[in-house]
Design a binder for these strands. Structure first.
Lengths: 246, 246
DNA sequence: TACCAAATGTGTATTTTATACACTTTTATA
DNA sequence: TATAAAAGTGTATAAAATACACATTTGGTA
């Protein structure tokens, strides 16, 4: 394989969001600058899973490759949500130090294409090469590298927007889930409370939330019925309607 | 002013959409390749309003500058909607010819950030420098330069999506509009029919559609009452709700 | 083995919203 | 003054949203 050339001015950053039945989490990667001669740790902070794209790969492929390289995760449903090109997005002192020392010398003008992905944040096995990727609660994801605080903020804004209008919540739940888990998720993301009976009445109208003949096991109380989301049924039965009204 | 440097690999393309009470239109710019020595017209086609960004400008500013340069229009509400980075997006023969002959030699790997803007397409005065910008019905916007057919398609998809969920339709109407104009717009974009009485009943629930004490003038029939959209009222009274249900 | 803790699961009455549907009114113009 | 063209209006019915409280099932433990 011949050497692939990285594009100096274009990168991809992925906001991988997970839910653990309590809160929303994001995968962040360790960025520690160690001086090679003295082994001094100059600083240590966190970044999103992101990197420059190669000249011979499109944006979606770049996003998938970068996530795989940094976390080992494959086949995530990565979707583009916004691009970031502020002039000062790499101008914090740590970013400049990092760019000076990190081998490949890149431009300090990089436009990055933001991607996001949703998954349940339990049972995720990271396979890391060198750098450490891990889940962090989004509430604690502050002081990140570059403009990544802003990128995360925009991703969550985008997530909330889609949450109101499409059934994407299921991507954050296990394949088989209980209605209480679903309700907790929606309450957490949308910051609302729902009445249990009315929530269930509403869900029962959704043909694409399919009841299974299985129950929870290993819980110290009455086990709940499990449900699945059917994408097929959703696509076939969805009816759009005005909802900006009133 | 010192010479600004264009970025080889990054451009912005703007899909400026207008409505003329009949159909959706888009501003396109003439791209005619004339050989300088023989004056032969090699080809002539159309592009979106787009160009490379400068090293010292952010994406939003670039979009505004490019639209102004190509059309004379200022202060349009330009919003980013998607980015395009397919490997072959500049690989049609005309695109290659154009890139070879058009002076500045750019890379054939350009990632473009898509912006869109909405406005009523009547009473728009183009001030053009050299190249011709004009409205074209979106239905006839085929065979455009680069991947611009695809960019337009994605923009309209985005528009429809937002149309269902937010009152952005008003950006495509004159400041003062009649309910029939509004209904026709929604029917055109969403591809649905609404019952007149039910549509009006619904609109009357929207506090942010404000009836004026004015009527249409110069029409050869009973003149309709005029209405305005109030962004202030909308922001203060909007209630989000689930709408992906059922 | 009886009791407790913990979470599940269920129904009804009321209000609000959506839908279906047809004729009269107002204006400019011929 | 008759006509054409579009504006404007109400009611009955069906569907959906909301408010609200208690009995049930299970595992664990005394």
């Amino acid at each position: 394989m011949t050497a692939r050339k990285l594009m100096q001015n274009i990168s991809v950053d992925c906001v991988i969001l997970g839910f653990d039945s309590e809160q929303l989490n994001v995968i962040l990667v360790d960025r520690t600058l160690i001086l090679p001669n003295t082994s001094e740790v100059v600083f240590s902070d966190l970044t999103l899973t992101g990197y420059h794209i190669y000249e011979d790969e499109d944006l979606d492929s770049a996003a998938a490759r970068i996530v795989k390289d940094l976390t080992g995760l494959e086949n995530l449903p990565l979707k583009q949500f916004y691009s970031f090109g502020a002039l000062d997005r790499l101008h914090h002192p740590n970013d400049q130090l990092w760019l000076e020392h990190c081998g490949d010398v890149f431009s300090d003008r990089v436009v990055t294409i933001g991607y996001y992905s949703l998954l349940p944040s339990t049972n995720v096995n990271f396979i890391q090469k060198g750098r450490n990727a891990a889940w962090y609660p989004v509430t604690s994801a502050k002081g990140l590298a570059y403009d990544h605080d802003f990128v995360v903020e925009k991703a969550i804004e985008h997530l909330r927007y889609k949450f109101w209008h499409e059934p994407i919540g299921f991507e954050l739940l296990p394949v088989k889930f209980t209605l209480s888990q679903m309700q907790k998720l929606y309450e957490a993301i949308l910051g609302t409370q729902f009445d249990k009976r009315n929530f269930r009445k509403k869900v029962s109208q959704m043909d694409y939330v399919v009841p299974l003949k299985e129950k929870q096991i290993g819980v110290a109380h009455k086990p709940a019925q499990l449900f699945m989301f059917s994408c097929d049924v959703y696509e076939k039965t969805r009816k759009e309607r005005f909802d900006f009204f009133v």
